[in-house]
């Protein structure tokens, strides 16, 4: 490996002389072709990224029952079918419940912890941070399996509660890191000023630090909601009879491909994009870059 990296190095100073003006122009013309090829490739890559979502959104409005070419006209009836489907709607309610509870729980646990990690040093701090991120970074199958082992050992009945515990565990590390990153950009002299004016640590946090972290926290919450809304690989292990929307959709898809699924999918895409829009607007105001 090292030879392939080193070999060009001596070649660079000893390269050929600059080409003449006319030759340069010809080269420039020919040089445009690779650029155009690159543009085309990039367009195809973006298409590749979005094709599945586009297809789902298009067929949510297609009148035909089968999802084939060509489309037989437009309709909104699949949305009606989806929204009047008790199973799907219960799944949606469960998902929203799970996502909001786990996001709030993970924020309540994670933000103070991130605050402490920013301010205090203790042995094993780096290891602790890495461990917190593990449930988010490892494949869902590993994280789900480990938590299911615990629930089986303790004889806990699998339910939405176990799903909430799993999602909270997954989000906790993300929120801790987001808090640490946000606080690293924060100018501590504001806190000193507040303390000099007589505020204690709690008041300083509540009235000075927290308001300044507001957009970052809302951003984190939106991120958490979207991740939880979509989670399936961990949930599959720890879910009971009550199911989240992705699980309901998954079990439906095993038996049939109904365009109502496209409609509910398009709804989820809509909700996610709306959340993203809110987030990007919030971050633009602060001048920070998105994650």
């Amino acid at each position: 490996m090292s030879t392939t990296i080193e070999s060009p190095a001596p070649a660079r100073p000893a390269g050929p002389a600059r080409p003449s003006g006319a030759r340069r122009a010809a080269l420039a013309l020919r040089g445009r072709l690779p650029g155009l090829a690159l543009d085309g490739t990039v367009a195809l890559i973006y298409l590749f990224l979005y094709l599945p979502a586009i297809v789902i959104a298009v067929y949510a409005f297609s009148a035909g029952r089968t999802m084939s070419w060509p489309i037989d006209g437009l309709t909104l009836s699949w949305f009606e079918t989806a929204y009047s489907d008790d199973g799907l709607m219960e799944g949606l309610r469960n998902t929203l419940k799970v996502a909001s509870i786990s996001t709030v729980a993970a924020l309540l646990l994670g933000v103070p912890a991130g605050f402490a990690l920013d301010r205090f040093d203790f042995p094993g701090k780096a290891l602790f941070q890495r461990m917190l991120m593990a449930p988010f970074l490892v494949p869902g199958v590993v994280s789900g399996m480990a938590l299911l082992s615990l629930f089986l050992e303790l004889d806990v009945r699998l339910s939405l509660t176990t799903v909430v515990i799993t999602h909270t565990t997954m989000l906790l590390g993300v929120f801790v890191i987001l808090t640490v990153v946000t606080l690293q950009r924060w100018d501590r002299s504001y806190e000193q000023a507040a303390m000099d004016l007589g505020a204690n640590e709690l008041r300083t946090f509540w009235f000075v630090v927290l308001p300044n972290m507001k957009s970052a926290l809302i951003g984190a919450a939106l991120l958490g909601l979207t991740v939880s809304l979509d989670e399936i690989t961990r949930t599959f292990f720890v879910t009971g009879t009550d199911n989240t929307l992705p699980m309901v959709v998954m079990s439906r898809l095993r038996t049939e491909l109904s365009p109502a699924i496209n409609a509910i999918g398009t709804t989820i895409i809509g909700i996610s994009l709306l959340g993203l829009l809110i987030w990007s607007l919030l971050f633009r105001k602060r001048g920070a870059t998105p994650l």
């Binding site: 979005y50 599945p52 979502a53 297809v55 992705p246």
Partner: peptide, 16 residues
């Protein structure tokens, strides 16, 4: 693209 949902992106390929 990450936001569009794991399940949906998998399902989309099947429709396609």
């Amino acid at each position: 693209a990450l936001w569009l949902g794991y399940l949906l992106r998998v399902f989309g390929w099947r429709v396609l």
